[in-house]
């Protein structure tokens, strides 16, 4: 028996919005420790890694490990049926071929039950090596989304260069070029507005804008985003999901042909 309850269904809605650009279907691996999802996009350029800890749920029970393959378009249709203030409970029996979603309004005046058929998906788990990143940038997630959107107008790719002075985002194409520099913030009132750079060595990497823009669909989940970079390895873009967990995106760089 698996059961996971979240008072704020809005979090699950946002998680879904954050992954459905990159993935059409995915397996949710449920265990005693929580729910995990790891999947690559079709082109094998990016990877989504979602971790929702069991202790972050308002109720959580998972007697046996369970892998639930879901079509994310169909899951989105069902999650759209939940009111913003509703509580959501996901339930499945052991070895079930369906997952149940129950939405309850405040005071349980309205209770809606939906069942979705599960799919058998080929699981392609990747081992992600432990990496000591040369640069870790923490910045406001909305600022990052804005930069990705703005620079996408100039070219398909953007370079991210990090030194201890700051981080520079640049793009160039037919219409011209764009450069955005962000300095580390000296002192800010709100922690979430800060730009913080931890640098061991300067790094400059180039990435496809299309994927970065897809990652920024996670912006509503967190006020801050963390970019981890080392020369010639995939970028990690991480959004914390409150006390519940995190979503990490890995993106392979574009390299000199």
């Amino acid at each position: 028996m698996f059961e996971a309850r979240l008072v704020q269904s809005a979090i699950l809605k946002k998680v879904l919005e954050a992954i459905k650009d990159l993935l059409t279907e995915a397996t949710f691996d449920c265990s005693d420790s929580g729910i995990q999802l790891q999947a690559m996009d079709n082109a094998h350029v990016s990877l989504v890694s979602l971790n929702l800890r069991s202790d972050g749920f308002d109720k959580y029970r998972c007697d046996r490990n369970l892998s639930m393959g879901m079509n994310l378009g169909n899951m989105t249709k069902i999650m759209k049926c939940a009111g913003a203030e509703d509580t959501v409970t996901m339930k499945a029996q052991d070895n079930a071929d369906v997952v149940a979603f129950m939405f309850e309004s405040k005071n349980q005046e309205k209770v809606s039950d939906y069942e979705m058929k599960l799919m058998n998906l080929d699981q392609e788990h990747l081992g992600i090596p432990e990496t000591d990143y040369s640069c870790i940038v923490k910045m406001p997630s909305q600022e990052f989304a804005r930069i990705c959107r703005d620079l996408s107008q100039f070219g398909e790719s953007m370079a991210i260069s990090c030194t201890k002075e700051g981080v520079k985002f640049s793009s160039a194409g037919d219409i011209g070029s764009a450069n955005i520099k962000l300095a580390q913030t000296a002192n800010v009132d709100a922690e979430e507005e800060a730009v913080v750079i931890e640098m061991q060595e300067p790094v400059s990497l180039t990435f496809a804008c299309r994927y970065l823009n897809s990652f920024t669909k996670a912006t509503p989940l967190s006020a801050q985003v963390q970019l981890s970079m080392s020369a010639d390895v995939p970028l990690v873009v991480e959004y914390k999901i409150g006390e519940l967990g995190h979503i990490r995106y890995y993106l392979a760089p574009k390299i000199e042909d």
């Binding site: 094998h44 350029v45 990016s46 081992g127 992600i128 390895v233 890995y250 392979a252 390299i255």
Partner: peptide, 14 residues
């Protein structure tokens, strides 16, 4: 010219 590489160049299937 830069080319996009696959994530599979970095991460191994487990």
């Amino acid at each position: 010219k830069r080319k996009q590489v696959s994530l599979l160049n970095f991460f191994k299937k487990s």
